[in-house]
Amino acid sequence: MAVSIDDVRRVAALARLELSSGEQERLTTELSRILDYMEKLNELDTDGVEPTAHLTPDASVFRADERERFEALRELLSQAPDLRENYFRVPRIID
């Protein structure tokens, strides 16, 4: 599976990563090699095999729909890079 530098740019945009041109080139080579390795999986016949997405028993886990108060709210919010009266401040979103 040859990965192109355009693929790398497209995926970086999806992943919200800004990569230098050196990083883009290196990742083009590395991802190609790693994905080539993963091609080996195609040797296995998996027709009719159910995928395993997780290992917990099928039933979903339910709980009562009750509100709980997180005791360390102040400590939690104090982690914000830019907090103004319990609002997270961010750079402008629209022009």
Binding site: V3, D7, V8, R10, V11, A12, L14, A15, L17, L27, E30, L31, I34, L35, M38, L41, N42, L44, T46, V49, E50, P51, T52, A53
Partner: peptide, 27 residues
């Protein structure tokens, strides 16, 4: 590198070939 690889195998057109295949191999 791993975020890039993971995003790639989940992206449109590659999901079945990589992610779904790997889940079946997991079985």
């Amino acid at each position: 590198r791993r975020i890039m690889l993971g995003t790639y195998v989940l992206s449109a057109g590659y999901y079945d070939a990589y992610y779904l295949k790997a889940q079946k191999v997991r079985t």
